[in-house]
Design a protein around this nucleic acid. Structure first.
Length: 278
DNA sequence: AATCGCTCCAACCGCAGCCAT
DNA sequence: TATGGCTGCGGTTGGAGCGAT
């Protein structure tokens, strides 16, 4: 395949956009749309490449772009989704209306990653001096968590026979974490062995492919998200549903967001204390 | 006031995947 | 099936802004 010449070689303009260029681009897209980005700059009379126009529109000029700082809720959502999806910024952006993948990527690298690393360092320190253990992740895991093992075993975490509950969504997660602050079950994360494979597109499409309304799907865990140790993972479409997970009865809340179902499962002890599972 | 170092973010680059031919 | 064009995505960079010295 022959690569298209870059903007510079074609004598096109690069760098920051001027207000006049913005005005021309907005005006053109309002009138004609953006069916063909490559042809757009020429037709609009802009000395830019189509790629640059697309980026400017997507990341800055689109009317539905949300301006201003990220809210605490948005940040928590990013953190939760990043934990599940890794650096799939566009997938994360799809869950945050008005936010772009570029913006989310930036806020992750400039704020959230540093914050999490700091928190985890603090947690590690706490772990050394306390019986309670909180899940910790290294910097490399924060970079691409979806490709890493999940350091928690439900069997181990519930080995005392306590009930285990699973819930989902960043919002719920945040809410429940807040409610149950300081009540984490004692768990030794270093002894966990279950591996959580990366979630891929086929996982989500499989999850959505069930014809049975009462049961979303039986996931193929060989390449799914939980573990090879699990034979079945069933989940209802109702907000809170029962999940048979390694012989334990979980409750899980499923949220349908855009094209995906995503789950943020928390383990609970005696129905109250919660530890994020994934 | 000048300089330095750091942070932040808009924009660019290169690759992968999809689609038309 | 092979090829080429286009779009979307994620990683990276450059420079503006700002605080510290």
């Amino acid at each position: 395949m022959v690569r298209a010449p870059c903007c510079e070689k074609m004598g096109l303009k690069r760098g920051p956009w001027t207000p006049e260029e913005d005005r021309i681009l907005i005006s053109y897209i309002h009138k004609h749309g953006h069916a063909n980005w490559r042809a757009l700059p020429k037709q609009a009379g802009l000395l830019r490449c189509g790629k640059s126009c697309r980026l400017r529109w997507i990341n800055y000029l689109r009317p539905d772009i949300k301006r201003g700082n990220f809210t605490k809720e948005e940040e928590e959502t990013i953190i939760n989704l990043h934990e599940m999806l890794g650096n799939r910024w566009s997938a994360i952006a799809a869950k945050l209306p008005g936010r772009t993948d570029n913006e989310i990527k930036n806020v992750w690298h400039t704020h959230l990653k540093k914050r999490l690393i700091k928190q985890n360092q603090e947690n590690s320190d706490t772990k050394k001096h306390s019986k309670s253990t909180i899940i910790t992740k290294s910097e490399s895991e924060l970079t691409n968590p979806a490709s890493n093992s999940l350091p928690m075993s439900p069997q181990q975490s519930s080995s005392d026979g306590s009930s285990v509950t699973a819930v989902t969504t960043g919002e719920t997660n945040d809410h429940m974490k807040e409610e149950n602050k300081g009540e984490h079950e004692v768990v030794d994360i270093d002894s966990f062995e279950i591996s959580f494979p990366a979630i891929d597109e086929s996982f989500w499409s499989d999850a959505l492919s069930s014809d049975d309304n009462s049961s979303l799907s039986t996931l193929d865990l060989g390449r799914g998200m939980i573990s090879n140790d699990i034979d079945q993972f069933q989940i209802d479409q109702s907000p809170f549903s029962s999940v048979d997970f390694m012989g334990y009865d979980y409750n899980a809340k499923s949220e349908h967001v855009g094209m995906d179902f995503w789950y943020n499962i928390l383990l609970t002890t005696e129905g109250e204390s919660m530890v994020p599972l994934f």
